[in-house]
Design a protein around this nucleic acid. Sequence first.
DNA 1: GCACTATATATCGGCATGCGACATATGCAT
DNA 2: ATGCATATGTCGCATGCCGATATATAGTGC
Lengths: 107, 107
Amino acid sequence: MTEQAFFVLTALVGEPRHGYGIVGEVAELSGGRVSLRVGTLYGVLDRLVAEGLVEPDREEVANGRLRRYYRLTERGRDELATEADRQAANARAAVARLRAWRPGEAT
Amino acid sequence: MTEQAFFVLTALVGEPRHGYGIVGEVAELSGGRVSLRVGTLYGVLDRLVAEGLVEPDREEVANGRLRRYYRLTERGRDELATEADRQAANARAAVARLRAWRPGEAT
DNA sequence: GCACTATATATCGGCATGCGACATATGCAT
DNA sequence: ATGCATATGTCGCATGCCGATATATAGTGC
């Protein structure tokens, strides 16, 4: 799973969001580290829908502008949890190695 | 940074390794979750060398077979540490959200 | 002797993905 | 009127992953 897809899923946890809202939410919850571009968003969203991790929720018109909402599926939630564990494990593996071999302490 | 590049850097922490050795090391330290393919390896390695995160170490001939070793640079080590923090933070953000909204507790 | 496997290097082409640029449209402020 | 924030979406380029392929040596099984 790509980092962008990972953050889209995370942004959708709890409540459905529309495309533009996801962009803002991703920027916020990543602390600005990841800026999801619109050119990326719809491609990612289409793929996630095709994989059954996300599904269309509803359409709203707010202030004359269309809002298309998406929500996380049960499977999307599970996949996200699995992926989060993976990432955490990867980070742990790297940190453990970096600690084991301090500079100048090469085997 | 891609997951493959991340694992190549991790595999090189502490001691220089040759290409084929990196493949085995990555498989081991990822618990089999990531299988780095040879078609991927050399591309990743070239990019890391170009970015100054990895550099050629030495060449050896063992059992009539050439072994080309690579080692992690100071910058490579720093980048890996930064990336590991990023991954850990991403995982934490996702887990925190998943815990906050349990199934059926939607806002 | 011959086939197969493991070790070890490297290249090539197809496919997926990320993203800048662009297109379109509304409401609000200047 | 001009521009900005909001909101949707498309297109093409560049990057990156990986299967397939090529080359070469040493050891094992038949």
